[in-house]
Every structure is written in structure tokens, then in C-alpha cells.
Design a protein around this nucleic acid. Structure first.
Length: 524
DNA sequence: GAAGAGGAGGTTC
DNA sequence: GAACCTCCTCTTC
């Protein structure tokens, strides 16, 4: 009959997926020295952990456990510790009912489990240990099973205070007001999506087998009690400091000798890891799915920052529209924001278009100390504006528009359907890397000079001028991507030339072999 | 000879 | 129908 008690730091080592997702990194060697700020964050968003004991024993209906009293102080029962008290079942009813009726969601049983408010039977901890003593392991036909349910609940965010206040509590005092103002809608989104829901995971382990690894039940009892005492002062059940039992188990390497197991060597992590191409593709898709919402949030925040600054300085969000005075105003403002030296006006006598065309080297030449930062900030501005402007106004036929483009992603899954207003905008409408435009592919190669710098590289990044250094290799890569083994540079270049008519690419002013130039805004 | 330019028809989605 | 792919001829470097 199942019983749920606070996990007291115990994590059944049976479901590695669950384990990996919820693993307390502080358990690793040296992990106790967590970054204090991180620890604070964990305290605010503390997972609720439910552990259910349900012995497969006919005697269990006699148990009247008081785990709640034993392991959970009264003042905590309503916080992070949950004891599920099920109705008492007779031995017959227990035997007649399958485990699936109790825990259909257990990994072996694979159905969903009731919420933490559901009820299960109980058993006293003393009787539990008595039972352990009476029934020698592992020969007992009745094994205890432990089911741990982890509810990742936004405890810190679900306080009566506003989301912004809760979030700000994680920050330094001087940041509070800013973050309250700037992150409120981001937090609102997070609350409405992820944090508003409990994420439930569970695992089941044969407790009997687990206990058999201990010399006697007293040692386990002692460990559990010590663990609970240690967690008492903080009144936090699942703090990183907990999991004493697990710590002990992890430190105990006797099992390695017992089962002739060698420790896993993670040293390879620092080295080269080769992945099969299909797996790599799946990983990229998974990464995209995970990162895209965050990326969109960042873009939104970036746009707001740009708007705020535009209002403050009275300048256009489009850098190419800036006058010389606007340029100077923006440079001064950005320099102050980043604590850079005041820009010398004589170095920056130009309008916004000229500024936007400067390369990073140009910036660094004019401002050796902060040129890189200023250039990066301008790129962000251009990207933020293009995101907004292209989605609102830009049409493929009107490339004369002074809108700039933000090819924010070099992802190979991008698609530029003619029905879309923004051909440079990343989309995820189709998975896989086969549907990609040649110009996007070339930009993808150009974006990874470490990998592909030997076959294609930028000559002038700001103007979108690039050179194909190894036409055979580029063609081979393109053919591989498009699953066209017969691809060669002759065909690839024919496709590039098709871009001349479409206004995507052009030959450079001084024609050079294997040198092409992206048209605006594709050069961004 | 390699690469560029461009016409024309075919293929895939 | 768009976006290539393929083949071709001619030109340029």
C-alpha cells in the first residue's frame, strides 16, 4: 500500500531520465559550493518532491504510519513537503487490485498518476523498519517500492506578490526597479506558460533490492534520520544541502567492487565528440525548439530597449535614417551605457547609412577601446529594427526600401516562401535541412569561419562581399545538404547567377572570380 | 582551362 | 509556380 513522504533527499536510482532532469548538481564532488546566488534562486523556485512508499505486503493494512509527524514539522506540511495519506485497504483488496490501480503512471505501468492530493494508505516508519528486519532481503516475496514524484512548481513565483517582485527578489537591490519594469511581461509570459504548471515526473524502484545493498536496516534508519535532522534547521526539504542519503550512497564505492563496475570516465567530454548526421540534425531541431521561445523573448526585449532609447534621444529606430547629429547622440549614449570613453566627434562625422556600413575594424580604428562594443550594439539595433520593420513593411519587390534585414539565424531550416513578407526571417515551418535556399546556406557557411573558412569567407562582411575559396568543396557541401550528389560548382554558380535577377546577389563592382556580394538587405 | 554569363528544359516541392 | 537542377554554348580571365 503506498505512502508518500518527503523524499528526505532520497532519489531512486532507477529512472535516469527523471534523475538527470532533477539531479542535484551539488551532489557531485565539489558541488556543495554552489554559487550563493544560484542557491538563492533554487530556494525561490523549489521543486516539490513526493516520495511514496507502498509495500507489496499483505501485512501492510495493519500499518498506521506517521511519516508526516516523523519527518515533516508541522510548519512545513503546507509548504514543500507532501504526505499522501491513502485510504486503508484490506489485504484482500490490495491483493485483488493491481498495482496499476495504485500507480498506473509508474514507469513500468505507464499511466498517469493522481495529483498530490490523492490518497494512499500509510505505514509507520518503525513498522517499516520492523518489516525490513523481519523480511530478509532480497529473498522476501514482498518488496517495498518507492515512488518519487517531483513536482517542479513555481513556489517562488506563486507568492502573493507580483511576478516582477518575485523575480526581483533574486536580483541586487539596485536592479530591482529596472527589472520590475523591464521583465514584467517576460515573467508574465513565463508564468502563463511554464511556471504556471506543475511539471510532474516520477520513478519507481524496487526498494527491497535497494535495501539489500545495506548491511542492516539500522544503518538505513540512521542515515534517514541524520538526513532529516540535517535538513531541519533550514526547514527546507529539498535544498541542495539535502540528499544526504544519496550523498552517502554516491560516496560509497563498495558497490563498484561488488558488481565489478568501473566508474564512468567523463574525461572525453573535453575532447571531440562526433555525432552521426541524423542525430546531429535531430539535436539541432531539438535545440531550435528549445531555444526559439527564449530567442523570441530576447528579440522582444531588445526591441523595447531600442524604442526606449529612440524616445529618449529622439532618433529613428532605423540607424540608416540617422543624421550626423543622431549618430553622435547615439554613440555618446551607448558609450555611457557601457562605460566607454566619450567618442571623438571628429572621428564620427557621418550619417547613419555610413555608420551602418562600417565594419567592426572601422569601429575599432575610430574607437580602439570600445569599437567592438559599439559595433555590436549597432548590429543589435539593425537586427531589432529589421525584425520590426520587415514584418511590418518590407516586401521582396521593394528592395529599394531602406529597411535593413536581420538574418538572425543561419539555421539550415529556414524557409523563404514567396508568401512570406520577410524572406530573411527564420521560420520553423519545415523540419530537416533539405529545404534551404542557396544564399542561406552560403551565409551559414560564412557564419562558421572556424569550420568553413578554408572554403568560403567574408571579404567585407558589412558589404556582404564574400569569396569562395574552394569551389569544389562548397559545391560538394551544397550537394550534400540538398542530397544532390551530382552537384558541382558549375551548377551552383548557375543558381547564384539566378540571384542576380532576384536582387539577392550581385557581382562586385570590380568583378573578381569567385567573389560575390549579397544585395541589401540580404547582406545583413 | 577554369570560371562567368545566360538560355532552355527538367525536377521537386 | 518558385526554386533550383542540369545541360548547353559562348565569353572572359
Amino acid at each position: 500500500m503506498p505512502q508518500t513522504v518527503p523524499s528526505a533527499g532520497f532519489t531512486p536510482p532507477c529512472d535516469y531520465t527523471n534523475y538527470a532532469d532533477n539531479f542535484d548538481l551539488s551532489l557531485l564532488p565539489g558541488g556543495e559550493q554552489l554559487d550563493p546566488s544560484l542557491s538563492q534562486s533554487f530556494d525561490k523556485v523549489q521543486p516539490k518532491i513526493y516520495t511514496t512508499f507502498y509495500p507489496n505486503s499483505p501485512q501492510q493494512d495493519d500499518f498506521r504510519p506517521d511519516f508526516q509527524t516523523l519527518l515533516v514539522p508541522d510548519d512545513e506540511k503546507s509548504q514543500n513537503s507532501y504526505l499522501e495519506v491513502p485510504p486503508i485497504l484490506s489485504p484482500n483488496s490490495y491483493r485483488q487490485s493491481s498495482e496499476a490501480n495504485f500507480y498506473p503512471s509508474s514507469p513500468e505501468l505507464s499511466l498517469y498518476t493522481p495529483s498530490p492530493s490523492s490518497h494512499y494508505s500509510q505505514s509507520p516508519v518503525d513498522d517499516f523498519f520492523h518489516y525490513v528486519k523481519k523480511e530478509p532481503y532480497p529473498s522476501s516475496p514482498y518488496s517495498y517500492r518507492v515512488k518519487e514524484e517531483n513536482f517542479l512548481s513555481p513556489c517562488g513565483f506563486s507568492s502573493p506578490t507580483s511576478p516582477a517582485t518575485s523575480y526581483s527578489s533574486l536580483s541586487s537591490p539596485e536592479q530591482i526597479n529596472i527589472q520590475q519594469a523591464e521583465n514584467s511581461d517576460v515573467l508574465e509570459l513565463l508564468e502563463n506558460t511554464v511556471l504556471d504548471k506543475q511539471i510532474k515526473q516520477e520513478s519507481t524502484v524496487d526498494f527491497g533490492n535497494l535495501l539489500s545493498s545495506f548491511q542492516d536496516s539500522e544503518s538505513l534508519r540512521r542515515l534517514l534520520e541524520d538526513d532529516f535532522k540535517e535538513s531541519q534547521p533550514e526547514a527546507e526539504v529539498s535544498k541542495p544541502k539535502d540528499h544526504q542519503l544519496l550523498r552517502e550512497v554516491l560516496r560509497d564505492t563498495s558497490f563498484q567492487k561488488k558488481f565489478n563496475i568501473r566508474p564512468i570516465d567523463f574525461g572525453f567530454i573535453g575532447g571531440e565528440i562526433k555525432m552521426e548526421e541524423p542525430d546531429e540534425s535531430a539535436q539541432r531541431e531539438l535545440m531550435r525548439e528549445n531555444i526559439e521561445p527564449v530567442f523570441n523573448l530576447a528579440i522582444e526585449q531588445m526591441k523595447k530597449d531600442v524604442d526606449t532609447t529612440c524616445t529618449a534621444l529622439g532618433i529613428s529606430p532605423d540607424p540608416t535614417q540617422w543624421s550626423a547629429a543622431d549618430v553622435l547622440s547615439w554613440l555618446q549614449w551607448t558609450s555611457r551605457q557601457f562605460g566607454l570613453a566619450e567618442p571623438l566627434p571628429e572621428q564620427w562625422e557621418m550619417n547613419g547609412s555610413s555608420l551602418a556600413a562600417l565594419s567592426e575594424e572601422d569601429f575599432t580604428r575610430r574607437s580602439p577601446q570600445g569599437g567592438m562594443i559599439l559595433h555590436a550594439q549597432l548590429e543589435i539595433w539593425k537586427a531589432a529594427y529589421s525584425e520590426e520593420d520587415l514584418s511590418m513593411k518590407w516586401q521582396p519587390e521593394t528592395t529599394s526600401s531602406n529597411a535593413s534585414s536581420g538574418d538572425m539565424s543561419d539555421d539550415d531550416d529556414e524557409e523563404a516562401s514567396s508568401s512570406q513578407a520577410d524572406p530573411t526571417r527564420p521560420t520553423t515551418s519545415r523540419a530537416g535541412g533539405s529545404h534551404i535556399h542557396l544564399w542561406q546556406f552560403l551565409k551559414e557557411l560564412l557564419a562558421s569561419p572556424q569550420t568553413h573558412g578554408s572554403c568560403i569567407r567574408w571579404l567585407d562582411r558589412s558589404k556582404g562581399i564574400f569569396k569562395i575559396e574552394d569551389s569544389v568543396k562548397v559545391a560538394r557541401l551544397w550537394g550534400k545538404r540538398k542530397n544532390r550528389p551530382a552537384m558541382n560548382y558549375d551548377k551552383l554558380s548557375r543558381s547564384i547567377r539566378q540571384y542576380y535577377k532576384k536582387g539577392i546577389m550581385k557581382k562586385t563592382e570590380r568583378s573578381q572570380r569567385l567573389v560575390y556580394q549579397f544585395c541589401h538587405p540580404y547582406n545583413l
